[in-house]
């Protein structure tokens, strides 16, 4: 099936070494994977295994020391609005309102005010923040701030959205809620998403495909295609079986 789908990300023999006086640190080694159009891929692995580094490489904030990353046929060479990012901490522009945050991307690219307002409104509505357009982020809860971050990434209408453990700092309750939200949002506004997490439940709930990563240096350990019907039930036997398998496989990577 993948033969007919458009490839969005190609990671080819990617490696990344951080050089420092204290010694060189090989964080990513010979990383190979593809992500296809409109696919929701979860990069899953233990903490501190360089998952965020992979996203930084894909987004162009850092460059690989070996191999190359090609996004939509173009080699990544720096940050680009074609690749959106949702961060672990919300990283909102605290001095701008919800609306100003969400329309930031289109505004920077010179989209006329009327069009970008409409577009921003569409995504604000999509993440359920209707009525909060003129609030400043400081007045919103952690979950709501993260929704703004998601709307801001989507409003730029990028080819690809990277999410770096976006719910890592939320409490368990809000986390479940936000997982449902992301599921709903990505069904409504279909995009290619690369989602990083160290939570197996979250990975299985959201992913079309899970890529399990090795620990230091990071490379692909195993892949799983998740074809459980959506929305998924955390307590179904299939869900639990997959979770067991992935957790066992992850233990082997350590």
């Amino acid at each position: 099936m993948s033969e007919t789908r458009k490839t969005v990300i190609e990671c080819k023999h990617v490696s990344k070494t951080f050089y420092s006086m204290a010694g060189d640190n090989l964080v990513v080694s010979d990383l190979n994977f593809n992500v296809y159009e409109n696919e929701f891929v979860v990069l899953f692995g233990p903490g501190q295994c360089g998952k965020s580094t992979i996203l930084n490489l894909i987004s162009g904030l850092e460059s690989p020391t070996g191999g190359e990353i090609v996004v939509s046929g173009e080699k990544v060479s720096g940050p680009s609005p074609k690749r959106g990012m949702v961060y672990q901490t919300t990283n909102l522009f605290m001095w701008y309102t919800v609306m100003q945050n969400v329309e930031f991307g289109p505004k920077m690219q010179g989209v006329p005010k009327k069009i970008r307002r409409e577009r921003a409104q569409k995504y604000i509505d999509l993440v359920g923040l209707n009525g909060f357009e003129n609030q400043f982020p400081v007045k919103l809860s952690g979950g709501m701030q993260q929704r703004v971050g998601i709307a801001r990434a989507y409003a730029n209408e990028p080819e690809l959205i990277c999410m770096d453990e976006p719910f890592g700092h939320l409490d368990a309750q809000t986390r479940y809620l936000m997982e449902e939200e992301v599921e709903r949002i990505s069904n409504t506004a279909r995009r290619t998403v690369v989602f990083v997490t160290n939570n197996a439940e979250e990975a299985i709930y959201l992913a079309d495909r899970i890529i399990l990563l090795h620990n230091c240096p990071t490379s692909v350990h195993k892949e799983y295609t998740v074809d459980l019907p959506r929305p998924r039930d955390y307590t179904s036997p299939e869900f639990l079986a997959l979770r067991e398998q992935i957790t066992a496989d992850m233990d082997n990577t350590l």
Partner: peptide, 13 residues
Amino acid sequence: ENMLGVAYMLGAN
């Protein structure tokens, strides 16, 4: 500096 990175990612020069 992270916020500058955010701005660049969103297409700011």
